[in-house]
Amino acid sequence: MSTITLLFSIFLLTLLMITTMAIVRTRNLFVAVMLMGIASLLIAASFFLLDAADVALTEAAVGAGISTVLFLGALALTSERERSPSSLPLLSLGIVAIVALIVIYATFDQPPLGSPSAPVQAHLTPWYIESTRELIDIPNVVTAVLASFRGYDTLGEVIVVFTAGVGVLFLLGTGASASAAGAPLSEDNAGLRHYLIPRILGRLLIPFILLLGFYVQFHGEYSPGGGFQAGAIVAASIILYSLLEGEQRALLVIPQGVLLAMMVGGVLLYGAVGVAGLVLGGNFLDYSVLDSDPVKGQQWGILLIEIGIGITVAGVLISIFHAFASRGAA
C-alpha cells in the first residue's frame, strides 16, 4: 500500500473520527442525520482505499442513501431537537474509555495493516481466489464467495432483511390501509408537485438511476455490484419518484400487493434455488447440479439468487418507506 494512499486514508479516517464526535455532540437531530450521511460517505471512501469496492458501493447506497431517508422520515414524525441533556455523562464516559483502552491494548499484538504474513491472507484467501477461477470462473471473487461458497450466510441475511420488512409492516401497518386507497389523487399537496424544475429533472433522471440499478444487478459477476446494491438503488429511485410525484402516485406505480409479492417472492426464489440443488442430488444451495456443466450451474445459481436478493431488498426498502410515509399522512 503506497504511503500516499495510506496517508490519504489516514486523513479520511481522522475526518471520520471528527464527524462522529460532532454527530454525538450536536443537540439538533437533523444536523446529526446529515453528518451521518457524510460519515457514511467517508467510510465508503476509506473502504474503497482498502480495496473493498463492493462494500464501498453498498455502504454508499445503503448507508448514505437509505438510512438517511429512513432517519429523515422518522424525524419528520418526531421532534427534531434533542430535549434532555445526556444522563450521567461522566460515568458512561469512563466506561467507554476503559473499553476503548482494552481494544487498543489488544491491537498491539495484531499484524499491522496489509501485512502479507497475516493468517487472514494465508489461510482461506488463496483457495477462494484459486477455486473461483477454476470452479465458478467469474472475475468478481467477492460475488462468488458471497453467493456460492458462503451462500447460506447470504440466505440468512436475506431473511434478516425480510424480517425487518415484516417487522416494520407489523408495527406500522401497511401503507395502503393507512391512507384511503380509493381517495382521488389530490393534486395540490402531493410531493413537490408545484416544484417545476425538480420534477422535470427527476422525470429525466429516474430512468437512468433504474438503468444503473439493473446494470449493477446483472453485472455483479464482473464488476463490483450485486443484489443488495441493486435493490438499494432501485428503491432509491422509486423513493425519489414518490418524493417528487407524491406518495399516492408512487403507490399506483408499485401497489402494496406487488411490494409484498416482491418481498416474499425474492426469498422464495432464493429458497427455491437451494431446494432445487437439494432435489437434483447435491446438498442444499449446491448450484453445480443445476446444469450439466457444473461451472455453468454455478453461474446460473449465482445469477438467480442475486435476482432474488435484488427483488427482496427493493421490495422491503420501498414498503418500509411507504410505511413511514403513510404514518405521517394518517
Binding site: 482498502l50 480495496d51 473493498a52 463492493d54 462494500v55 453498498t58 455502504e59 445503503v62 448507508g63 437509505i66 438510512s67 429512513l70 432517519f71 487472514v120 491472507q121 482461506l124 484467501t125 477462494y128 481466489i129 471473487v141 467477492v142 462468488a144 464467495v145 458471497l146 458462503r150 450466510d153 447470504t154 440468512g156 441475511e157 434478516v160 432483511v161 424480517t163 425487518a164 417487522g167 416494520v168 450485486g226 443488495f228 431488498v313 418500509i320
Partner: peptide, 22 residues
C-alpha cells in the same frame, strides 16, 4: 488480491445494521 472473505461478511453485516435501524 486483498482477501474477499471479510468483505463478504461486511456486506451481510451492513444489511443487518440497516435492518435493525429500520
Amino acid at each position: 488480491f486483498s482477501s474477499p472473505l471479510p468483505q463478504v461478511l461486511i456486506l451481510t453485516a451492513i444489511v443487518v445494521s440497516i435492518s435493525t435501524t429500520a
